[in-house]
């Protein structure tokens, strides 16, 4: 009983401290997807649970080809993401994709900011709420 007094609080702390698991995930699962591109961003990762939504504002420069990668731990399933301009106009969504739902390749003909919105679908039948890392990264290539 005395042991449980210590174990339970430590276990409950895990949701707060589990961000520390995302760097290896990013290195092993996300960086390889940017092969051929120069990674131009910080490691943007967070631990999310089903039902979560996240947003990231990114600047893309004209005359470059980019790869945007949005990758979630398999425990969360396929996450939905969409790209919108700052006037909320939809530019891309992965919802209608049947394969390669994690990366989006594009060229920029002008410099502009775009918003990436991520949605982790609900898992209504899950007995235990899963949580896992979601990473957003970009890489670029110079256009020749």
């Amino acid at each position: 009983m005395k042991l449980l007094q210590y174990i339970i609080p430590v276990m409950l702390l895990i949701p707060v401290t589990s961000d520390a698991q995302c760097r290896p995930f990013t290195k092993n699962k996300v960086l390889p997807l940017l092969s051929g591109y120069v990674q131009n961003d910080n490691f943007n990762s967070a631990v999310l649970v089903p039902g979560d939504e996240a947003e990231l504002l990114l600047t893309f420069y004209s005359g470059k080809e980019y790869r945007l990668a949005v990758v979630a731990h398999p425990i969360l399933g396929d996450v939905d993401f969409e790209v919108r301009d700052t006037n909320d106009q939809l530019v891309y969504t992965n919802k209608d994709k049947t394969d390669n739902k994690t990366t989006f390749d594009f060229k920029m003909s002008s410099t502009q900011q775009l918003i990436v919105r991520i949605n982790v679908p609900d898992q209504k039948n899950a007995v235990i709420t899963p949580e896992g890392c979601v990473t957003v990264m970009t890489g670029y290539k110079e256009l020749k």
Binding site: I8, P9, V10, L12, L13, P15, V16, A46, L48, V49, G51, D52, E53, A54, E55, L56, L57, T86, D88, I115, T129
Partner: peptide, 20 residues
């Protein structure tokens, strides 16, 4: 339109962790 994550449920684990 902000870069901060909009999350419905992370407040709960943090709250529990706070107490714990």
């Amino acid at each position: 339109k902000q870069s901060i994550m909009k999350k419905k449920s992370w407040i709960i684990p943090i709250g529990v962790a706070l107490v714990s």
